[in-house]
Design a protein around this nucleic acid. Sequence first.
DNA 1: TAGATTGTTAATCGATTAACAATC
DNA 2: TAGATTGTTAATCGATTAACAATC
Lengths: 214, 214
Amino acid sequence: MPKEGVSIQVIRRLPRYYRYLSELESKGVEKISSTKLAVLMSSTASQIRQDLNCFGGFGQQGYGYSVTGLREEIGKILGLSETHHMILIGAGNLGRAIATHLNFEQLGFKLTAIFEKDEKLIGTMLRGIKVMRDEEIENYVKDNDVSTAILAMPKEAVEKLIDKLYGCGIRSYWNFSHFDIAKKYDDVIVENVHLSDSLMTLCYRINQAPGIDT
Amino acid sequence: MPKEGVSIQVIRRLPRYYRYLSELESKGVEKISSTKLAVLMSSTASQIRQDLNCFGGFGQQGYGYSVTGLREEIGKILGLSETHHMILIGAGNLGRAIATHLNFEQLGFKLTAIFEKDEKLIGTMLRGIKVMRDEEIENYVKDNDVSTAILAMPKEAVEKLIDKLYGCGIRSYWNFSHFDIAKKYDDVIVENVHLSDSLMTLCYRINQAPGIDT
DNA sequence: TAGATTGTTAATCGATTAACAATC
DNA sequence: TAGATTGTTAATCGATTAACAATC
């Protein structure tokens, strides 16, 4: 169903549609028009209809969209019920926050193993998963289906580890480090989360804004 | 120096330039051309020159850019030495990760206070800061300069708290929740970080990719 | 039927890329 | 001077917005 070549801008809006539709659904709203959804989301009706029609005609003329129906369709497009297995590498502050904070099961994933370098953390439990030693990654990946690795460690550590992960066949990464994985391997899927970049852009905008100091 | 109306796309690329230039600098590289930087960053020379010339002419014809000089200029543009004071609200897993993981001082900010609802966490120390009771926010903000609030708590909690924060005069937010602050107040600066949205787009791309399963 | 709202085509707008004169 | 590379203008490309016929 999802067509090829949908732009990344459209794809990045899909989770947001999904969230707003989920909320409408939980409030018992049954149908919504692109115009009303646009007001709710500070978007435009045109954009919503264009975005959705990249994947199919989910509405009904003269009526609008079924809230539940559309939410489900977007869930299918995103593939949220696919259950890719993922491993977390790095059980420091950030890794622990990721592991405990997210509902992986609702996001198309299942966290199945956690690895860490620091001896002090090995053996501790996180989300019901025992933190394993760094060196066990290769064996684990050989014996288990692993789709994706979450990289919650510094750039330098990723630099050292990435060949091993790639060698094990892992081709998708949720990357919190500043190591540029896509540059090194062009056949991988990488979603980067650069928190410090995000904060820097906030800094820029505060400085640009008139009358906001401190 | 930074001109008005620079597009958000350009601004979001600035931290990345800053990072790559910092790395070149630490490797002792003194000059770089837009062409070489483009190769390094998987960008284009045109885009780099266009981006930089939104803010000024930092290069020298026939030579290129001074690595240190350009890094410093971009640092100035981003305002990384401005030291805005920020408070963190929410000392759960995510809040703790944010507090301990980032070098605020290098990013234009200083974390000065942490607030939390959960009694068990109040009084604990994070990054040398004692976690305070939720209700003390207003008094703290009245007595101290606070530019920005980091919101590391669920949507519902932000929904309840946002009027108080806005009422205290806080006009910029680093928002990890799904509450839509910009919708409610149109004179605020909001940088959203939606980790679950990010993971969903990864899910989509894995499902689209040929031959990647599990 | 009349009103509403979609799906889709066309128009506009803005961002990226290419080209090249200026100049170090 | 000749070569290199910028700053900047022009061309292209793609995304967003507007318009409207189709249709529920």
